[in-house]
Amino acid sequence: MRMDGVGKVFAGEVTALSDMNLTLAEGEFVSLLGPSGCGKSTALRLIAGLMQPTTGKVSWQGRHDTGDLGVVFQEPTLMPWATVEKNVWLPLRLRGEKLDAMRPRIREALDMVGLGKFANAYPRELSGGMKMRVSIARALVTQPRLILMDEPFAALDEITRNRMNDDLLALRGRLGCTVIFVTHSVFESVYLSDRIVVMAPRPGRVAEEVTVTAANRDQDFRTSADYAGLCRAVSAALSRATGDT
């Protein structure tokens, strides 16, 4: 997946994004980090194909069908009238797959996020963290090659959020899919990503990139000096990005 000189101008001459270049390697975890108004969500919508860029080109060679892309929004975005199982079924259902035939796959996706027992629950019966897990299971059920996540854990409390981060890392280690993760949390981005793209606002653009190398991402990494140093570096990059406008 690559973006070449991608820009987006909205009516009223608001430049949401200008000249963004981004190339993703297979299996890479990239965070888009920046303050609000820096165009990270616009970038995500362009990649998802929900918008066309004003300038430049978004290309993705590996994409063959709709199932190659999974999306997780900031809100769980579940259908309240459908059970967990039927919510996860949605991407498959829209391709014409029957529920009975798909049950093992849905079950597998739910097991991956630890919700195997909740297939017949309704979303309202679940906690915020569990709803988010359903949302992730729905993104995983098509076995996507690229997953877009738009501040998925921003609304969760910190304890839940840390657990979700660990679970996400474990899942990704197992599935090896490429992830683009939008966040405004420095700590989260350092903990999760291989590469952090720091973005600047007005107009939205890429300011700097920070590469993260860590052997193991676990509790030790979170308390290590490396981690603290990286967080400092990313914070500095972020203040440069927001300060020079």
Partner: peptide
Amino acid sequence: DRNLADLYRIYGASRWQRLIHLQLPSAL
């Protein structure tokens, strides 16, 4: 829900699928 509508678009839902599976239940 706007995000749900986006999701339907991303997964390539037809106008008909959007009506039956998304709009009608939302309107219930």
